[in-house]
Computed example of a mutant assay.
Amino acid sequence: MGCVCGRQSVIIQGQKFHLMQQIGEGSFSYVFEARNTADSHQYAIKKMSCHTDEEERRARDEIENYQRFSHPNLVSLLYHEQAQYNPNAHVTSIVWLVFPYFKNGSLQNVFDKQIKFSTRVLLDLFLSICEGVRQIHEKQMAHRDLKPSNIMLLNNSHGVILDFGSMKPASISITTRSEAQQWQDWAEENCCVQYRAPELFHIETNSLITCQTDIFSLGGILYACCFGKGPFDDVYSRGDSVALAIASGRIELPVQSSTYPSIIIDTMLAMLHTEPDQRPTITDIIDKLSTASRLAMDIA
C-alpha cells in the first residue's frame, strides 16, 4: 500500500510504477514522470510529503477536489494512496496521486518556444479551457490558481486544467480582520502572482471573494495566448510591484494586438477589469468567443 520498492519504484493501489524523472515541484510535493511496469504506459505521479496534520488535511482536500469532476477539460485522478507514517523522514504520511501524462506539455511550454496561434486555434484552445472552468464554477467551486503551467495540452485545440490544490468554494465571506489577513496570506502562498486577481492582494473586512478571481486569471491566460506572455510578466521580470501594476487597471497591448479580431481583445480586457463584478461570467465569455470562433471558421 503506497510502499516504495527501492528508490525508483512505488506501488499504488496494486499498480507498480517506475519513477523515471522529476518534472515538477510544489511547496510540499514533487511530480514525476512514471511508467506502469505492467503495460509501460506513462503517467504523472505527484508525491506529497505531509509533515503536519494541516498538510495532511490539504492533501485530503485536494483528492476530494479531483473526485468532484469528470470532464474532458479537467485532469482525472486515476489512483491515489496514503503511505504509512515514516518517523525517520520526519513526516506524518506520504500521499501519492497518479494522473495521465501529457506528452505535449503545458501551455507555458508553448509560450517558452515562442509558438504563435492562429485565430482559429487560439479560440478553440481557449474555449476548451473555459469549458473546464465552467464545470468548476457550476459545482460552486473556484480553481484560484489558473496559469499557463497548469494548462496541459492534448493537442492544439484541447487544454486540460490540472492542480486542484488551491481549489476552494466559489464564494468566501470575509467578516473579520483576522480572516482577511488569513486569506491574504493564503493567496500569497497559493496563487501565482502574475495571474492573481487584484482583490486577492488586499482583502478587505466584510468582503466577498468570488469565482470571478478565476475570470481575471483567465484574462491573463488569453492575453498570453495572443502575445506569448502574460500582461504582467515583464513587471515581474523587472522586479517591480506586480500588485501595483494589477491594481492600476492599465493593460498594455503590443502592436500585434491588431492581428486578432476586436471581440477577442475586448473580451480579454473585460476579463482583466479590476472590479470583480465588472468582469463577464464564464458563460458570457464562452458565448462571446464561440461567436468569434464561428466567424473565424466562416472566414477560413
Rank of each mutant, 00 (worst) to 15 (best):
D163F: 03
A59E: 08
K168V: 12
K229W: 04
W183R: 04
L208N: 14
G228R: 05
D298C: 07
I285D: 00
W186V: 01
I136R: 01
F201R: 13
S257D: 14
Y195D: 00
A300G: 15
Q8C: 05
A44G: 14
C191S: 08
I172C: 10
S118N: 11
Y66W: 10
Q114I: 08
A245D: 11
Q278C: 13
R7I: 06
G165F: 01
A224T: 02
C211G: 11
I264Q: 06
Y223L: 03
S106N: 10
M297R: 15
R35L: 03
A270D: 03
S257F: 13
Q184K: 10
K288F: 03
E81V: 03
S70P: 01
Y43V: 10
D39C: 09
T259E: 14
I12S: 10
Y223H: 08
Y195L: 00
L122D: 06
E54D: 12
N109E: 13
A243W: 05
L162K: 10
L295P: 02
Y223G: 01
A83D: 12
T281I: 04
E54V: 02
G220T: 08
T283D: 12
I174S: 05
G249H: 09
A245S: 14
S173A: 12
L77I: 07
R250C: 14
V110K: 06
F216R: 00
E252I: 00
M297L: 15
S29G: 10
L222R: 12
G14S: 09
I94R: 13
